[in-house]
Simulated scan of single mutants.
Amino acid sequence: MKDLGSQIAYWDGVGATKTFTHPVNLSWLAGVDRDARILDYGCGYGRVMAELSEHGFRDVSGVDLSPALIERGRQFRSDLRFAVLESPPDLIDASGSFDVVLLFAVLTCIPDTHAQRALVRELNRVLAPGGLLYVSDMVLEDDERNHSRYAAYARQFGTPYGVFATDDGAVCRHHDIAELRALLSDFDLVDERGIEVATMNGHLSQAVQLLARNR
Score class of each variant (00 low, 15 high):
Lys2Asp: 15
Gly5Pro: 10
Gln7Met: 12
Gln7Arg: 11
Gln7Ser: 13
Ala16Lys: 07
Lys18Pro: 01
Thr19Trp: 14
Thr21Met: 07
His22Val: 11
Val24Arg: 09
Asn25Ala: 05
Leu26Arg: 14
Ser27Trp: 06
Leu29Arg: 04
Leu29Val: 10
Ala30Ser: 15
Ala30Asp: 05
Gly31Leu: 06
Asp33Asn: 15
Asp35Ile: 06
Arg37Cys: 01
Tyr41Lys: 00
Gly44Ser: 12
Arg47Cys: 09
Leu52Phe: 09
Leu52Glu: 01
Ser53Phe: 07
Ser53Lys: 15
Glu54His: 10
His55Thr: 12
His55Lys: 14
Gly56Ser: 08
Phe57Trp: 13
Phe57Glu: 06
Arg58Lys: 14
Asp64His: 09
Leu65Cys: 03
Ser66Asp: 02
Pro67Cys: 08
Leu69Gly: 01
Ile70Ser: 00
Ile70Asp: 01
Gly73Leu: 13
Ser78His: 07
Asp79Cys: 09
Leu80Pro: 11
Ala83Asn: 08
Val84Asn: 03
Glu86Leu: 12
Pro88Ser: 08
Ile92Lys: 10
Ala94Pro: 10
Ser95Val: 05
Gly96Gln: 03
Ser97Met: 04
Phe104Ser: 14
Phe104Ile: 14
Val106Lys: 03
Val106His: 02
Pro111Gln: 09
Thr113Tyr: 10
Arg121Thr: 04
Asn124Arg: 14
Asn124Gln: 13
Asn124Ala: 12
Arg125Tyr: 05
Tyr134Asp: 00
Val135Cys: 07
Val135Asp: 00
Val135Asn: 00
Met138Tyr: 08
Asp143Asn: 15
Glu144Gln: 14
His147Trp: 11
Arg149Leu: 07
Ala152Arg: 15
Ala154Cys: 07
Tyr161Phe: 11
Gly162Val: 06
Val163Leu: 05
Thr166Pro: 04
Gly169Lys: 04
Val171Pro: 00
Cys172Trp: 05
Cys172Tyr: 07
His174Gly: 01
His175Leu: 05
Ile177Glu: 15
Leu180Thr: 03
Leu184Asn: 02
Leu184Arg: 06
Leu184Glu: 05
Ser185Lys: 13
Ser185Asn: 09
Ser185His: 14
Leu189Gln: 12
Val190Trp: 05
Val190Gly: 02
Gly194Ala: 08
Ile195Pro: 00
Glu196Trp: 08
Val197Arg: 13
Ala198Phe: 08
Met200Lys: 00
Asn201His: 13
His203Gly: 01
Gln206Pro: 03
Ala207Phe: 03
Val208Glu: 07
Leu210Ser: 04
Leu211Gln: 08
Arg213Ala: 13
